[in-house]
Design a protein around this nucleic acid. Sequence first.
DNA 1: TTAGGTGCAAAACCTTTGCCATCCC
DNA 2: GGGATGGCAAAGGTTTTGCACCTAA
Lengths: 133, 133
Amino acid sequence: MGRKSKQKEAILKVVKSTDTHPTADWVYEQVRRDIPNISLGTVYRNLKLLTRDGEILGLGGGDTAGRFDGNIRDHYHFRCERCNRVLDLDEPVDKTMNERLAQRLGVTVNRHSLEFYGLCQDCQSGITNDKAE
Amino acid sequence: MGRKSKQKEAILKVVKSTDTHPTADWVYEQVRRDIPNISLGTVYRNLKLLTRDGEILGLGGGDTAGRFDGNIRDHYHFRCERCNRVLDLDEPVDKTMNERLAQRLGVTVNRHSLEFYGLCQDCQSGITNDKAE
DNA sequence: TTAGGTGCAAAACCTTTGCCATCCC
DNA sequence: GGGATGGCAAAGGTTTTGCACCTAA
């Protein structure tokens, strides 16, 4: 599954230690504090490896999503359409849906992703908040 | 809401007439059959406009998703992790989830997106099928 | 020792944008 | 006429890759 490196460990630690669902570039900036000459390519490579190995999740499923999630517990998301913040939800995850669908369609279902879209509290009240990406 | 053009109409027609959830580039190739000198920029511009106007959907919600859906009925998706095919599902859409979440979190919820991931029939049987993107 | 990882920089993609010509209303 | 739209090409942003050099096992 690949050998250890301080770069990979630092990257994993950054992703695990935030709930901001960061982009590759944000991770890069954070890791740079500890390893100033790390390269962005290394960050991309390791995020992809960590995603494949199931140590982190690619948001929206897969490693092409552009944002990552260190929380690999099954959970859902709420995304603010204005500031693009992503919140983890505590809603219970219903895995029976997977089986029902698998039977009905004759496919294999590994997982599902449920995301809600709307305006977060800050953005509703207009306090806000540049449109971030 | 913007004026008419044959380019925009052709683009809409292409997206509406397929259930393959095409990328901008695929749409471009199709439209080119009718309008050989249409430019890719025009396709992007119009896909964005059509998405904003609600005439088509950006997959995964929004217009940054890279794939589009001419079916604007509320519906869910199944995505094959091997061949990346996307299937429309007939599952009933449960809008009460939106309200429950909105109340609990104090946010505004406009919609949600539910995607299942797994292997489609072809990819299970190994008949398949290059990894498309 | 050596497969695998790293840094760097270039390349590859994908999407947006500026500019001017053209078209609709 | 005048603002919207289109074609073209250049610019932007993000992600991947080739390569020579390291490093963990």
